[in-house]
Structure formats: C-alpha cells, structure tokens
Simulated scan of single mutants.
Amino acid sequence: MSVEIERKFLVTDERWKTMGQGVLLRQGYLSSSPERIVRVRIEGEGAMLTIKGRTVGATRSEWEYPIPLEDAQAFLDNLCERPIIEKYRYRIPYQGLTWEVDEFLGENSGLVVAEVELESEDQAFAKPAWIGQEVTHDARYYNANLLRHPYVRW
C-alpha cells in the first residue's frame, strides 16, 4: 500500500498551457463511494486500475495496478458509472515538484484544477503564479463527485 498526499487548487489563468503538453485521460468509476474509490483510467496507450481509501486531511491510502488497455476500455464502455470523466492532463515541473493541471471536458467543461503531490501534509512548497484558491477539502472538486454533480450544473 502507498499513501497519497495531495493538495488541489483552482487555476486562475492560462499561462500554464505553454508549459507542457496535454494528454487525454478517460476515467470511470466502478465504485465512487468515499470509503472506497475504484477507478479505471486510460491515459494515452496505458491503463490503470486504482483503489483509494477515505481521505483524511490531504492523505489517503492508494493502490495502483497496470491493466490491459482492452480491459480498461471494456470497463469504461460497460461497467463504469456514468458519465465518464474526460480531461486533458498537463504535467508541469515547478521548483522541484510536478503540478498536474487537469482541464476537464464534457459535463465538467470549464473546470481547471491543479494538484501537487507532497511527501507530508505540512511540506512547504512554492505555488506558481497561476495557482488560485485551494480546494483540497472541498468535496465538489473530487473527480468521483463530478460524476453526480458535474461542474456545468453548479
């Protein structure tokens, strides 16, 4: 088991777009319960099955396993909750950390968030100028919650 410590922020402008190449992600949920998230994701030509435990603060347990692309596509087409989350992810290095900027599509179009993974919850880090309000503890921004409450309906 590994532990994920992640902070999430809104993005204030589009300066980040010139800093990296976006990759299309398609992800669906076999379980979107806060106690146990089970996600299938296709990113480029790779696919992963991810299991996450309940979030406590900015930390939660996480397990990830590569799976065949064909299996992931079958899960997304036939088993996952709807709608499927689609977004472009940009990985942007900044002062020793990698920021992942997600630009959502479909029913979550218009939403752009940035996440950074840390070694500890109290780790100090520098924020790029395009980082805005922190939404780490706002459940509306959890990908699994965007299934039931898409951004375009807020």
Results as ranks from 00 to 15, higher is better:
Ser2Thr: 08
Val3Asp: 13
Glu4Arg: 06
Glu6Ile: 03
Arg7Tyr: 06
Lys8Gly: 05
Lys8Trp: 08
Leu10Thr: 00
Thr12His: 01
Asp13Gln: 11
Trp16Asp: 02
Lys17Gln: 09
Lys17Pro: 00
Thr18Asp: 14
Thr18Asn: 14
Leu24Phe: 10
Leu24Cys: 13
Leu25His: 07
Leu25Met: 15
Gln27Trp: 01
Gly28Arg: 00
Tyr29Lys: 00
Leu30Pro: 00
Ser31Asn: 08
Ser31Phe: 05
Ser31Met: 13
Ser33Glu: 12
Ser33Asn: 15
Pro34Ile: 01
Pro34Leu: 01
Glu35Ile: 03
Glu35Gly: 13
Arg36Cys: 12
Arg36Asp: 14
Val38Phe: 11
Val40Asn: 02
Ile42Trp: 00
Gly44Val: 00
Gly44Trp: 07
Ala47Lys: 02
Met48Ser: 08
Met48Val: 12
Leu49Arg: 06
Thr50Lys: 06
Arg54His: 15
Gly57His: 15
Gly57Thr: 03
Gly57Asp: 08
Trp63Tyr: 08
Trp63Ile: 07
Tyr65Val: 13
Pro68Ala: 09
Pro68Leu: 03
Leu69Val: 03
Leu69Asn: 15
Leu69Trp: 05
Ala72Trp: 01
Ala74Val: 05
Phe75Val: 05
Leu76Gly: 04
Leu76Cys: 05
Asp77Ser: 09
Asn78Met: 15
Asn78Thr: 12
Cys80Val: 07
Cys80Tyr: 07
Glu81Phe: 12
Arg82Ala: 11
Pro83Tyr: 02
Ile84Thr: 02
Ile84Leu: 13
Ile85Ala: 03
Glu86Trp: 04
Lys87Asn: 11
Tyr88Pro: 00
Tyr88Ala: 03
Tyr88Asp: 10
Arg89Ile: 10
Tyr90Gly: 02
Arg91Ile: 05
Arg91Leu: 09
Arg91Val: 06
Pro93Met: 05
Pro93Val: 05
Tyr94Glu: 05
Gln95Trp: 15
Gly96Asn: 09
Gly96Lys: 10
Gly96Asp: 07
Leu97Asp: 10
Leu97Asn: 06
Leu97Glu: 06
Leu97Gly: 04
Thr98Ile: 09
Val101Phe: 01
Glu103Arg: 11
Glu103Val: 10
Phe104Met: 05
Leu105Ala: 15
Gly106Cys: 08
Ser109Thr: 11
Ser109Pro: 09
Gly110Cys: 04
Ala114Lys: 01
Ala114Met: 02
Glu115Thr: 02
Val116Arg: 00
Glu117Met: 04
Glu117Tyr: 01
Leu118Trp: 03
Glu121Pro: 04
Glu121Asp: 09
Asp122Thr: 12
Gln123Trp: 06
Ala124Tyr: 13
Ala124Phe: 08
Phe125Asp: 05
Pro128Trp: 04
Pro128Glu: 01
Ile131Arg: 01
Ile131Gly: 05
Ile131Val: 04
Gly132Leu: 02
Gly132Cys: 07
Gln133Arg: 10
Gln133Ile: 03
Gln133Ser: 12
Val135Phe: 02
Thr136Val: 09
Thr136Cys: 12
His137Asn: 12
Asp138His: 12
Ala139Trp: 13
Arg140Phe: 11
Arg140Glu: 09
Arg140Ser: 06
Arg140Cys: 04
Tyr142His: 14
Ala144Pro: 15
Ala144Phe: 14
Asn145Leu: 03
Asn145His: 06
Leu146Trp: 01
Leu147Glu: 01
Arg148Lys: 15
His149Arg: 12
Val152Tyr: 14
Val152Trp: 15
Trp154Gly: 14
